[in-house]
Design a protein around this nucleic acid. Structure first.
Length: 785
DNA sequence: TAAGTGTTCTATGGA
DNA sequence: AGAACACTTA
């Protein structure tokens, strides 16, 4: 153990060997907090504390797994095995299964994912005959989620007139009824949603003092990582469990709190010292990860936030290269810039693809980047987005499996009762739902006893329903003897799923088959893996739970392959890469248009940017495009205010050579009026940095670009390959944004260029005559700017 | 009831 | 651009 402790600096050592009592470690980005957590647990065990008494809550299962492996390498595998480690959701799902009967739930309850919740809510809204434009299911779900995270139960809701009033004010007076119906239906279906896993844990610990005592005694030592991202519900669980022994260690960084949208409350970390007596406070401020330029740049941005704890992150690392800022014309150009600089940096410095990460604000941005990487033959892996387990075909298979262990699972039932089609249509399903609600039974029970009910269904359909029930029951029998893989294999074959996806040989169907195959392979691995774990049952239930709580980060397939990583910034939290690209730095995208209404929302976006920047070890790149496709339309955008907020001394601003050549004159003022009003609050001129001599001012004078944005020609950067649609753009010497003059229509601005060869067309917005599409080989255009 | 066609809406972020 | 949903027709 001594050997490990000697690896720590003094600031890290102190919290590592502080075992008893409440404590908080405020850990700046890259300051080695994972190391502190890991060694602290190992140290505790070396001092004789039983692994069974330690509970460690992390933000992702991946983090838990990695930490456990590191601890195992210090204290030995058999001891480390007994540690309770995982996310709030996975740890308390396990406990809830053990204690489920106390809450009236079956121990094999289903975990509804967001999609299941959405479908149920949409169905309830429809059943209640409410206007789906007023009651949008996503908004309703997020409202219900925030009730649950604040521990407002249905009963509490109806006891609080203010809540009803607030919803009535928001033109949704029947919110409470929907909430009640949703909760009832989940309960009847033996299902918990993600928020329930926390809410029900709270209920369990509050209503059953003996259960609370049991877990308090069990978890004498509690550690919580990423404490800044806990919500109220999680906060209360931690408080309850740590109340007896008060051996609670929380670690976090208020500057990295980025989950307010799902209820995370930054006050949990800001107020921790008020919650417990004699809190010891530790600060980790030395960054070991990044260069001086990166650390200082990140500090200069986060400095703009008002709400924060005192902390000065610094580093003894090298100065490093300045942060490179690149502007592109379009999102496609941005992708090409990223791909080509990765390609060249890799060549010049003998790097691996895995040294690079591309981070974005929204998943939808990945496409243009992917296209560019593919063209350069750079292998990549996308994390997040539509996760594997959310694909239609996978959810279909899983729904059959869910039905096997929990036939009450309404969402699973509705999903597969007529897929593949077996002649049970919407009308029949609706009748079953109504009847089930009327008898207060599950749909499956009604189907089983269809003749004892008053459901009006013709005999042909009744037979079909009976057959379906028999099918599921036959699977249940098989589940007694077969393992998960064998069962799933049987199900996909006999349910008709495989036939259905195979039938038309479309590329889509082929992909679906491949995915199902991959799922089956995963099950095989699961079955093999579980054989080695002693207390594991290897059961279907266990598999489904793993799947329900898995994140895309968790199943790291393709570890064998060296790939560039693509992910949202949210997903990148806690990770680090030598070279990091932060793309799409544009107003309304990052910061998001939906997060600019209040200061606190904007501050969260800024923290998100801080997180992004601090992922980089050696070099960070910031890129943005002047226009990008959103909802299938090309939309103009302004550079993000966050670029402007970085202290200029840490930046190196680049402009691609082709832009200089074509002199697009985007701000040219030939209509006597700037055509597009700048929405950005930062002065747009500063960021629309063109070479000084090209800036034409109204008065005809020229102005030098501000010092900060002097254009630097990138070294060794050849023009990006022109094999794509841009070819024409350059050959025709006409670019989007150019101002042209036409004999008949007068002056106009080029909006879009499309087509190839002789077929090149330009969409031009003429001052008189509006938007026209012209074939360039005929149109007599004079480029005036 | 199923399949085909038209229409609308959407895409912050994620356990 | 693409999915989800509504509507129409066989």
């Amino acid at each position: 153990m001594e050997k490990y402790l000697s690896q720590l600096n003094e600031a890290q050592l102190e919290p590592t060997i502080q075992i008893d009592g409440p404590m908080i470690v405020i850990a700046g980005a890259g300051s080695g907090k994972t190391r502190v957590l890991t060694y602290r647990i190992a140290y505790m065990m070396s001092k004789g504390i039983d692994a069974f008494n330690i509970l460690s809550l992390t933000f992702t299962n991946k983090a838990a797994r990695e930490m456990k492996e590191r601890i195992a390498s210090i204290v030995g595998t058999s001891e480390a095995k007994n540690l309770w480690m995982g996310t709030f959701h996975s740890v308390f799902a396990k406990i809830l299964r053990i204690e489920a009967d106390k809450l009236g739930y079956p121990s094999n309850f289903t975990i509804y994912d967001t999609q299941d919740s959405d479908r149920l809510i949409a169905s309830i809204i429809k059943e209640m005959n409410l206007d789906k434009d007023i009651y949008k299911y996503k908004q309703v779900r997020s409202r219900i989620s925030s009730y649950k995270n604040s521990l407002i139960t249905v009963r509490a809701y109806f006891q609080n007139p203010e809540l009803k009033e607030a919803d009535a004010m928001a033109r949704r007076p029947r919110m409470g009824e929907i909430y009640k119906e949703y909760v009832d239906r989940c309960f009847k279906a033996g299902a918990m949603d993600f928020d329930d896993l926390l809410l029900k844990t709270n209920e369990l610990l509050t209503r059953f003092p003996e259960v609370l005592a049991k877990y308090q005694n069990r978890f004498k030592y509690i550690l919580v990582d990423e404490y800044q991202d806990t919500n109220h519900s999680q906060y209360l669980i931690v408080r309850a469990l740590s109340d007896k022994f008060q051996n609670i260690c929380v670690v976090g960084d208020d500057a990295q709190s980025i989950y307010a949208f799902r209820g995370a409350n930054i006050n949990n970390i800001l107020n921790f010292q008020k919650d417990y007596d004699d809190v010891k406070v530790f600060r980790l401020e030395q960054n070991y990860r990044s260069t001086k330029n990166i650390v200082n740049a990140a500090n200069s941005v986060i400095d703009k936030n008002q709400t924060k704890l005192d902390k000065v992150v610094w580093t003894a690392n090298d100065e490093g290269g300045k942060i490179k800022v690149n502007r592109s014309l379009t999102d496609a150009d941005e992708g090409r810039y990223v791909a080509s600089t990765i390609f060249e940096t890799k060549m010049q410095n003998q790097l691996k693809n895995g040294d690079f990460a591309i981070l974005y604000r929204t998943n939808a941005q990945s496409r243009s980047i992917e296209d560019a990487l593919r063209k350069r033959d750079i292998p990549y892996r996308i994390y997040g987005g539509l996760s594997f387990y959310q694909r239609k075909e996978i959810k279909d298979v899983l729904s059959y499996l869910r039905l096997i262990i929990n036939p009450a699972d309404e969402e699973a039932l509705k999903r597969v009762i007529n897929f593949p089609p077996r002649g049970i249509g919407q009308t029949t399903v609706d009748k079953l739902i109504v009847s089930a609600n009327g008898y207060n039974r599950t749909m499956f029970e009604v189907m089983k006893n269809i003749d004892k009910t008053d459901v009006k269904i013709n005999s042909g359909t009744k037979t079909k329903l009976q057959n379906f029930v028999t099918l599921i029951e036959s699977y249940q029998v098989l589940n007694q003897t077969a393992d998960v893989f064998e069962l799933a294999e049987h199900v996909t074959r006999t349910s008709g799923l495989i036939k259905e996806f195979n039938k038309d040989g479309t590329p889509e169907g082929v992909t679906r088959m491949e995915n199902i195959e991959e799922l089956l392979n995963g099950m095989k691995d699961f079955v093999e893996g579980q054989k080695e774990i002693v207390d594991s049952t290897g059961s279907l239930a266990e598999f489904l739970e793993d799947v329900a709580l898995a994140t895309d980060l968790d199943n790291d397939k393709g570890e064998d392959m060296d790939r560039v990583s693509l992910m949202t910034i949210h997903l990148a939290k806690g990770l680090e890469f030598p070279y990091v690209y932060i793309v799409g730095l544009e107003e309304d995208l990052f910061p998001s248009a939906m997060s600019m209404n209040t200061r606190s929302e904007l501050e969260e976006e800024r923290r998100l940017f801080y997180v992004a920047l601090t992922r980089a070890e050696k070099q960070a790149y910031l890129t943005y495009a002047l226009s990008r496709y959103r909802w299938g339309k090309l939309v103009d955008s302004d550079p993000s205010r966050f670029i402007e907020e970085i202290d200029e001394q840490y930046l190196e601003v680049l402009t691609p050579p082709e832009e200089r050549r074509f002199n697009p004159m985007l701000d040219a003022d030939i209509f006597g009026d700037v055509p597009t009003e700048q929405k950005s609050k930062v002065s747009p001129d500063k960021l629309r940095f063109k070479p000084a001599k090209q800036v034409v001012l109204k008065k005809g004078s020229t102005k030098k670009a501000p010092e900060k944005f002097q254009v630097t020609q990138p070294k060794n950067l050849k023009p990006v390959s022109k094999t794509t649609e841009n070819t024409n753009l350059f050959d025709s010497k006409l670019a989007v944004g150019n101002i042209v003059k036409h004999m008949r229509f007068g002056a106009g601005e080029v909006m879009k260029i499309e087509g190839t060869g002789a077929d090149v067309k330009a969409e031009i917005n003429f001052q008189h005559g509006g938007v026209k599409k012209l074939l360039l080989r005929f149109a007599k255009l004079e480029v005036v700017g």
